[in-house]
Design a protein around this nucleic acid. Sequence first.
DNA 1: GGATACATGTAAGATGTTACATGATTGT
DNA 2: ACAATCATGTAACATCTTACATGTATCC
Lengths: 181, 181
Amino acid sequence: MIRLDTALGFAILGLLHLEPRSGYDLRKIFTTTPFDHFSDSPGAIYPALLRLRRKGWIRGTRPAGGRRRREFRLTPSGRRAWRAWLGRLPTRADVVWGMDHLMLRFAFMGDALPRSASLRFLEALTRRIDAHVADLRQYRKQTGISLPGRLAFDAGLEMYEARAQWVRRARAWLRRKGARS
Amino acid sequence: MIRLDTALGFAILGLLHLEPRSGYDLRKIFTTTPFDHFSDSPGAIYPALLRLRRKGWIRGTRPAGGRRRREFRLTPSGRRAWRAWLGRLPTRADVVWGMDHLMLRFAFMGDALPRSASLRFLEALTRRIDAHVADLRQYRKQTGISLPGRLAFDAGLEMYEARAQWVRRARAWLRRKGARS
DNA sequence: GGATACATGTAAGATGTTACATGATTGT
DNA sequence: ACAATCATGTAACATCTTACATGTATCC
């Protein structure tokens, strides 16, 4: 129904953009970091690295001999793909099905794009979230659900509202910090 | 790494528990409802129905002739599986990787289990979220990240805090409503 | 020399996506 | 008769999970 380009692929691209790393390094990051937890399993990461290599977005050192450390870094075309991904403004689909994605994008954005891009991103995100919250309220008014169902629904609604508040705060912070950086 | 029993399967089980439906009905629900959006594609739903049938959890009418409406309902063993799923208390893994799952479970719980089960569930959830928030704070203190990275991290943290607040409110509501139902 | 951490990968299987195929029923 | 909607399904492909297989470097 929606085409979210694969989260793991772009997370890897983002980490390799910061510095060259091996598959093992990536695994450690995914096991250690509490957020944006991607599969830390070799069965996900090594195939993902292979796919990125086949797309021409990364290239790795090729050490001679057995199983030895192999470091990957972005190619110019990989960097372009990465920036293109980061630069996309949030869509309704992103808000409904890929909020984690959006946060990942925002987190990486500061290192690769000008601050104005982050601000534009947050601005668009505010609008999308507000629109979605309005839709949900509309739905809630029209539809009868049981008490726990309603409570769970409201939990979802509140999460979007909390997110919207955070976006507004983040915009303010970014404007302030940006003014002196 | 973690074994989340498939969301779609249990969502279907939950909907069939409320009333018998066809695959087409389920698809319509998934396209129409704004929350807990599961794939509305026939390529997901019909195979899922087949799997549930093979597990012996649902059975369907078998209309003669071509492609005609086929209604599914839970078997006794399906009802047992369903209650067992609902009755599980939240784990740390649920909080980190499956919050949507948990909300789905809570939403369905009211129709199948006594109110005390919902209350126990929320109590356990509070403890789990609080523990996770403490972990995240700990991580944030120890780790240096860029400004947008930190902002995104804080967004995650705030979502958990908002969720924790909602849980406390939900418990209060449920206790109040329960007292007179 | 053995344990442990470093390091890369494959195989089997589950689930989901997109796109396609097909038939039945109802309204005009 | 035809279109729209109801209704069920398959095929090809991508991705992830679990479990396994294997080799290297370092420390004691």
